Computed example of a mutant assay.
Amino acid sequence: MRRNRLMLAAAAVVAATLALAGCAGSASPSSSSSSSSEAAAGFPVKIEDAFGTTTIDKAPERVVAWGYGSADALLALGTVPVAIPKQTYGGDKDGVLPWIKLKLKELGAATPAVLPNDGTTMPVQQIIAQNPDLVLAPYSGITKKERDQLTAVGIPVVAYPDKPWSTPWQDVITITGKALGKPAAAAAVLAKIDAQIAAAAAAHPEFRGKTVAQVWDTAGTFYVYLPADARVQFTEQLGFTTDPAVKTLDSGESTFYTTVSPEKIDALAKADIIVTYADDEAQLKAFTGSSDAKLLPQVSTGALAAVVGQARVTAVSPPTALSLTWGLNDYVKQLAAAVAAAGK
């Protein structure tokens, strides 16, 4: 989630240079009745973030989601945000991601207002116009100035706890649950996701112990994802082990990826399988026919699991309360095919 093509390739899908867009239809806030008593009993709550402490006096009814993953967490907990950021990468013509559309349909809710999102600047005035009683932005790039502008007019803001665009997806759900006064419901959402991942791993015992390297060859740069990356951690939960060569290639340029020059790509040749990402089939074909791919025997043997399509890439970049399970079955099928081709 970052601001340019380089960071898009590094998994910053939803905050890549987005075109400004207008708002879609507004939605009425909604919360699940099953956790209403929990919410009522949980206030006031105090949440620490990188800029200070936010006090939420009562259960919020008009929540603006900002950044990535917070809208998903709200919906997973039965609360429909009044506004969400436009997601051009992976979203539909209105900038709404497919799993969000599905959840809104399930809840019988209209599409929230879709806020302009250029990947760098928060549309503060448009947010204020939504008359929110909370702005939820735990995985975002919100600045202190933007936060101060909102709090100056009496709007509580929950920003990231440490650094921008770095909050683990599980923590986004936990923070959202706390902000809504639904910590037990948030824990239940996480437990359900863990159970689905565990079931997928149990169904594929052949994954256990297989080594994997995850890469993206795009715009003339070869990216390798490091163990700190959410998609790597998710894949390890399925039973895989990150190939040791990945750590040896780490140049320290980022916490979650490293770029690799052509003369070093063959260090990944011993991994059992390779996972790669591509915006579309054309980009995948360009990679598999490239000189870089020729350095990886997994490409020619078929031990390559390809995550193709902007929505599917977004779903694990990083995963969210809704997107992880949305793309889980397809991802597992790709991994299983790659392991079978590896024949080890």
Results as ranks from 00 to 15, higher is better:
2 R>F: 11
12 A>Y: 06
12 A>K: 07
18 L>C: 14
23 C>T: 14
28 S>N: 14
34 S>P: 04
36 S>G: 09
42 G>W: 10
43 F>P: 07
46 K>Y: 09
53 T>L: 12
55 T>P: 11
63 V>I: 14
65 A>K: 00
71 A>K: 03
72 D>V: 02
85 P>R: 00
86 K>Y: 14
86 K>P: 06
89 Y>R: 11
97 L>I: 13
101 K>M: 08
102 L>A: 15
113 A>S: 15
121 T>D: 10
122 M>E: 09
129 A>C: 05
130 Q>C: 01
136 L>C: 11
143 T>L: 08
147 R>C: 08
154 G>Q: 08
159 A>I: 11
165 W>N: 15
170 Q>E: 15
171 D>Y: 09
172 V>Q: 01
174 T>P: 09
181 G>S: 05
182 K>Q: 15
185 A>H: 00
187 A>T: 13
194 D>A: 12
196 Q>Y: 03
204 H>I: 02
207 F>H: 03
212 V>R: 01
221 T>G: 06
225 Y>C: 01
237 Q>W: 07
240 F>M: 02
241 T>D: 12
241 T>H: 12
244 P>A: 10
244 P>N: 10
246 V>P: 01
251 S>G: 11
254 S>E: 05
254 S>D: 15
256 F>V: 15
261 S>G: 13
274 I>P: 00
282 A>E: 13
285 K>V: 09
300 S>N: 13
306 A>W: 08
313 V>P: 07
317 S>R: 01
330 D>M: 03
333 K>S: 15
334 Q>M: 09
340 A>K: 15
